[in-house]
């Protein structure tokens, strides 16, 4: 497995945080996913070996927690809160607006490879819904107009990159 030296260094450091190595499963999965975009079979085996576990011990964690994924996503990951407070303020419409903007459906990578749009459960920003996370950043009160503006920004960045 090819990981950047800084990632390897962070992995070795985080393992020291726990008296039992197995506790580092989630932190290692986060670090690997941050670098590689998803958790491959190879990554599961590598993490298991690193923490002196069986691959199943890592695999069962990957398959349980919603934030770990076994397949790549688009360049930007758009997560729209689906739960009640956001839905009461139009969360479903927000999600549909994003899908329309990128001509894609929830869960799939958009045809241009730019985004994956997903519904997620409560993002704990209920007072300023609909809440949307794009990668690590939270966006509040994302109504349809704001969704279009965010989509335009992503598209502009994509256009600038391909120039």
């Amino acid at each position: 497995m090819n990981l950047k030296p800084e990632t390897l260094q962070r992995i070795d450091e985080v393992i020291t945080h726990y008296p039992v190595k197995r506790s580092a499963v989630l932190p290692l999965l986060h670090l690997v996913q941050e670098e590689q975009g998803y958790i491959s079979r190879e990554a599961i085996e590598w993490i298991a070996a690193k923490l002196e576990l069986q691959p199943i011990n890592v695999y069962e964690v990957v398959t349980f927690y919603p934030m770990f994924r076994q397949h790549p996503v688009g360049r930007r990951h758009i997560k729209v809160c689906r739960t009640l407070s956001c839905a009461l303020n139009g969360g479903y419409r927000t999600c549909e607006e994003f899908e329309k903007e990128f001509a894609t459906q929830r869960g799939a990578i958009s045809p241009d490879g730019e985004v994956t749009i997903e519904f997620v459960e409560c993002l704990a920003s209920c007072g300023s819904g609909p809440a949307v996370m794009i990668d690590d950043d939270l966006h509040e009160k994302v109504d349809c107009a704001k969704a279009r503006a965010l989509a335009a920004q992503i598209k502009a960045e994509a256009a600038a990159r391909t120039k």
Binding site: S23, L26, P27, L29, H30, F64, Y65, P66
Partner: peptide
């Protein structure tokens, strides 16, 4: 004190 991140499970 160390920070430990969850992964989306209620």
């Amino acid at each position: 004190i160390y920070v430990h991140r969850g992964a989306g499970a209620y």
